[in-house]
């Protein structure tokens, strides 16, 4: 069973419906008890960095999620759900989970529109079964003003918006995408399917 962590306000239904479409059993995780029932975990991205950290702490999920990650549960963080895994964010100037080394910074180029909104290409940097049947430089949907800065060894896909930024990162059982696979059409669904097949883990 796949668990989607419900922790803030915004569109949480679309990840749910994408997984349903793929024929998966899905539940929303709103408390600690439910967390033990799932073998795949998804942290969607909704709201702002500070309010998300606050909400996760309030419902007591923050620590428990970290344990789950250390236990090796396959995990997907989407957009803000990826950013929350890092040490620190410029958005609200506060600390994140600290599971991944690096920080979250804002796009600074004056010649670009912010948020980075729309379809952009993901350049594959490292082979992974997450990309099974997906061509290099495929378009995915993005909607964000901040991006992560981290060590090269975790970055398996990058995207350019005047600046190159990591659009997919993988560290052991943890996957993070800056784009929204649930909103990236058929290619996005394929990516989610690959993630849930778990073959990328080996």
């Amino acid at each position: 069973m796949v668990g989607i962590i419900k922790y803030g306000s915004g569109n949480i239904y679309s990840v749910f419906s994408a997984l349903k479409f793929l024929g998966k059993e899905v539940v929303f995780i709103e408390n600690l008890k439910m967390l033990d029932k799932v073998n795949y975990l998804i942290l969607p991205g909704v709201g702002s960095f500070a309010s998300s950290m606050e909400n996760l702490e309030k419902i007591g999920l923050l620590e428990k999620i970290v344990y789950k990650l250390e236990d090796g549960v396959p995990f997907l963080g989407i957009c803000l759900g990826l950013q929350l895994l890092f040490d620190w964010s410029e958005e609200g100037k506060i600390e994140g989970f600290g599971i991944l080394k690096g920080k979250v910074v804002k796009f600074k180029n004056k010649n670009i529109k912010i948020p980075h909104m729309g379809w952009n290409k993901v350049k594959v940097l490292k082979d992974s079964l997450l990309f099974k049947d997906i061509m290099d430089n495929s378009y995915f949907y993005f909607a964000h003003s901040y991006y992560v800065k981290t060590q090269k060894k975790f970055i398996i896909g990058k995207t350019n918006y005047k600046v190159d930024f990591p659009s997919i990162i993988v560290k052991e059982n943890i996957v993070g995408t800056q784009f929204h696979p649930e909103k990236s059409g058929e290619i996005g669904l394929l990516f989610l399917k690959n993630f849930l097949e778990g073959k990328w883990l080996q």
């Binding site: 306000s9 569109n11 709201g47 948020p115």
Partner: peptide, 8 residues
């Protein structure tokens, strides 16, 4: 914008 994020 504060509650749901500017992108929405």
């Amino acid at each position: 914008a504060k509650k749901f994020g500017s992108q929405s």
